[in-house]
């Protein structure tokens, strides 16, 4: 028998009336903590808003159709970011094609097939976790070394950039896919196996389809990270002034972040405005991609 304010093994709960006229959450310590939390939020959000508003104000004059349709030029009034936009599209598409199947396959192996008690598998797992935290420029250097080994002389090609970015986001995709696979309940796998399905059938027909929304979300977020990267591409000697459209995976290219980097370094005020406008464009694309990821996550989220 439990009674109100009763004792359990001699411990007595001090009896306070429910309607004490006070609010436990409004005592000094919780209140201070709450105010600090709000302050951090205001600071972080304030900086972000200031930055975006400044860029928009700076770039508004240059935010015209010319930005999308023209090639870079020596005068800011005639310059546009067309090759950079196309270059980004090429590099990201190539990265996606190279990384997503590989990342999913690696994650499926680690999660569904590998013996998790094996030291080798555990080591790989640990390394994948760590690789996600390696600075992006390191991947640029890695790709550079790799291409040199292969004897590629002109390293500023779409496939080269995509290689660097693939290395960069592969661990992210592997981790995201593993999370998505792990979110599929064991009961589903067991149910399938108990019917006489093989591991392979179970993964292919049950686990992976159920994990697709999570995998898609993770992949899009990883790709949007790759889209904003400039450092590894600069290491590979990405061109800063391209006046042609990239035409294939062996073509030279530039990307939006590199174009922004280039224009920011110019002395003319007009180029700074162009850089701001291009930043707004890049930001817009990133927001769209993240929005898509969130949409997929919410729309297809399974409730088990």
């Amino acid at each position: 028998m439990r009674t109100l304010g009763g004792t359990i093994d001699g411990a007595i709960r001090p009896e306070r009336p429910l309607a004490s006229g006070t609010n436990g959450e409004r005592r000094p310590a919780p209140l201070t903590f709450l105010v600090l939390l709000w302050l951090s939020l205001v600071v972080a959000f304030g900086v972000l808003v200031t930055l975006i508003v400044t860029i928009i104000i700076d770039g508004q004059g240059q935010f015209t159709g010319r930005l999308l349709s023209e090639y870079p030029a020596s005068s800011p009034d005639r310059a546009g970011a067309r090759p950079a936009i196309l270059g980004s599209a090429w590099v990201i598409a190539t990265t996606a094609i190279m990384t997503i199947p590989l990342g999913i396959a690696a994650a499926v192996h680690l999660e569904e097939f590998a013996d998790k008690r094996n030291w080798f598998n555990r080591m790989i797992e640990l390394n994948v976790q760590n690789l996600a935290a390696v600075p992006s420029i390191v991947y640029g250097l890695l790709a550079l070394a790799f291409l040199s080994l292969l004897g590629v002389r002109d390293k500023n090609i779409v496939i080269g950039g995509a290689l660097a970015l693939s290395l960069l986001i592969l661990p992210v995709i592997i981790i995201a896919t593993r999370e998505a696979l792990r979110a599929v309940p064991t009961e589903i796998r067991e149910g399938s196996l108990a019917l006489g399905a093989t591991q392979w059938q179970t993964t292919w027909r049950q686990t992976l389809p159920s994990a697709v929304p999570g995998i898609a979300t993770g992949s899009i977020l990883a790709l949007s990270r790759a889209l904003g990267e400039a450092a590894p591409l600069l290491v590979l000697g990405a061109l800063v002034f391209v006046s042609f459209d990239p035409s294939g995976i062996l073509s030279g290219y530039t990307t939006l972040p590199i174009q922004i980097f280039n224009w920011t370094g110019r002395p003319q005020e007009g180029f700074h405005q162009l850089a701001a406008a291009t930043s707004v464009l890049l930001l817009g694309v990133l927001v769209l991609m993240n929005g898509l990821a969130i949409y997929i996550r919410n729309r297809f989220q399974k409730r088990w």
């Binding site: 309940p185 589903i188 149910g191 108990a194 159920s210």
Partner: peptide, 9 residues
């Protein structure tokens, strides 16, 4: 047959 009903999605 398992403890928790586990139909496939």
């Amino acid at each position: 047959v398992f403890q928790k009903p586990n139909p496939f999605p």
